[in-house]
Design a protein around this nucleic acid. Structure first.
Length: 473
DNA sequence: ATGTGC
């Protein structure tokens, strides 16, 4: 599809609908954040998504947009369920319910620094990560099914956390519509040995410090203050989510013609939400969402124990939120209340103040939006705002600009070591060679992404965090 | 993202 971009404001671009688009594309990015390299398909993907059956309002892209499978990463699309609206696994991504969890320590930077080497030495062998096997929890099939149904709630019931953790998780730590019968054998097999593991690529566990607070009232409600030490965990549903995505893309690809659906790109395989295939995917996706939440709960619990042992202090959960999920949400569209299937892929839910799904203590200030940066660069906490045009969605990170291949070509191991030392970051990768794929230059400037999010009313910055120690896959 | 795949 040929994409013609129109600059709507200095911060936002529009793609006017041409056949087969049903709605416009809206890219919440200034010119310098647009993926304009020759051969980059991300903007074409925004236009392709606009052709999905039942899509309402627009095909949206966040400022950290980059090329993905079918949908761009940073894509948001909502379909009207009653109007034959579809759900597409490519609109969620392979890492179902990939997300971020932020924990706050009572220590400040000065109090923590003497403990940092010991903390890193202890966490390094304890936190399973990388492509190989190894996980905090080894389990049989029946316990895995409990995880798929109970998510972080089940982990807490088994002693891995406290009740307050669940209040600070999106959906209270578990969704109720998981259907573990829709999770195939191969996915179960891969999932059983990976609960409590980070994975690889841009997944990490970081010890951070609050570098700057932009909104004191929100920061206080979130439990954050300048100089404070935090732990940020970024991971997802590992091989289980990956296998579920693979399986259901294949299923939908095979039956799309029966539903009389045509899409501009085969990677947009989809089925009506109200079809056997649509319901099956959403049930399996919800099971993977619970798995990812249990995964983050276990990793947080283990980190908490290490902090207690070595510093004598605890860690409070600030929030846990996904940026790869589809959700059924009731929303007003053109003055009518509709049930929508909102796909967020590399986009974080960002509920505004007063939203009924927020816990009471967060209702006055809005939902914490957790935006991980790249290793050696900042991460952000934003809050949801009123007037968000993208179904209460915000950016999810910096957004890749170099392919993994190009990053390896541009950055060798000595250079990465030098850069991390200069940034004052203690990096513990499982492989230095693969860590070069994650060199900060391979990503957009996270500060610019957050500015663009703010200017487009997708969220408002609350705090900026910088890394002290990084564990990577 | 991923036991790196048709």
């Amino acid at each position: 599809m040929n994409v013609h971009l129109v600059e709507e404001t200095p911060w936002r671009h529009r793609i006017d609908p041409v056949d087969p688009m049903r709605v416009p594309g809206v890219v919440f990015a200034p010119h310098e954040l647009l993926p304009l390299d020759p051969g980059d398909k991300a903007l074409e993907q925004v236009a392709n998504v606009a052709a999905l059956p039942g899509i309402v309002r627009a095909s949206y892209a966040m400022p950290d947009i980059h090329w993905g499978y079918g949908f761009p990463i940073g894509g948001v699309a909502a379909t009207d369920v009653a109007a034959g609206g579809v759900v597409s696994p490519g609109g969620v991504g392979f890492d179902i319910c990939c997300g971020v969890r932020l924990l706050a320590s009572p220590l400040d930077r000065r109090g923590l620094l003497p403990h940092l080497p010991a903390l890193m030495d202890r966490l390094d062998p304890l936190i399973p990560r990388g492509l190989g096997r190894g996980a905090l929890w080894r389990m049989g099939r029946s316990q895995l099914h409990e995880v798929l149904r109970g998510g972080a709630r089940y982990a807490v019931e088994r002693g891995h956390g406290v009740a307050r953790d669940l209040e600070r998780c999106e959906d209270g730590g578990a969704v109720t519509d998981a259907d573990d019968r829709q999770v195939g054998d191969r996915a179960l097999e891969r999932g059983a040995a990976q609960v409590g593991s980070l994975g690889s690529a841009n997944h990490f566990l970081e010890i951070q410090t609050v570098d700057r607070v932009y909104d004191e009232r929100c920061a206080e409600a979130f439990g954050l203050r300048p100089g404070q030490v935090c732990v940020m965990i970024h991971c997802g549903s590992r091989g289980l989510g990956h296998q579920i995505c693979t399986d259901h893309v294949r299923l939908m690809d095979a039956v799309m013609h029966r539903h009389r659906i045509t899409v501009p790109d085969r990677q947009l395989a989809c089925a009506p939400v109200e079809s056997a295939e649509g319901r099956a995917y959403l049930g399996a996706m919800a099971a993977a969402a619970n798995y990812a939440r249990a995964n983050r709960q276990l990793l947080a619990d283990e980190t908490r124990h290490v902090f207690e042992e070595l510093t004598g202090t605890g860690l409070d959960l600030v929030y846990d939120v996904s940026h790869n999920l589809a959700k059924l949400e009731r929303r007003t569209v053109d003055g009518e209340e509709r049930l929508l299937c909102v796909h967020r892929k590399g986009a974080t839910r960002a509920l505004p103040p007063g939203h009924p799904d927020l816990p009471a203590d967060l209702a006055p200030v809005g939902q914490p939006v957790l935006v991980p940066g790249t290793m050696g660069t900042a991460s952000y906490v934003l809050t949801g705002t009123d007037g968000n045009l993208a179904f209460d969605s915000c950016c999810h990170g910096a957004g890749r600009v170099w392919s993994r291949h190009r990053a390896q070509r541009e950055c060798d191991v000595p250079r990465l070591r030098t850069e991390m030392t200069r940034a004052g970051v203690a990096l513990r990768p499982t492989s230095w060679r693969s860590a070069t794929e994650e060199v900060p230059q391979a990503y957009k400037d996270v500060d610019a992404v957050v500015t663009a999010s703010t200017e487009n009313r997708l969220g408002r910055p609350v705090a900026r965090l910088v890394p002290l120690g990084v564990l990577k896959g």
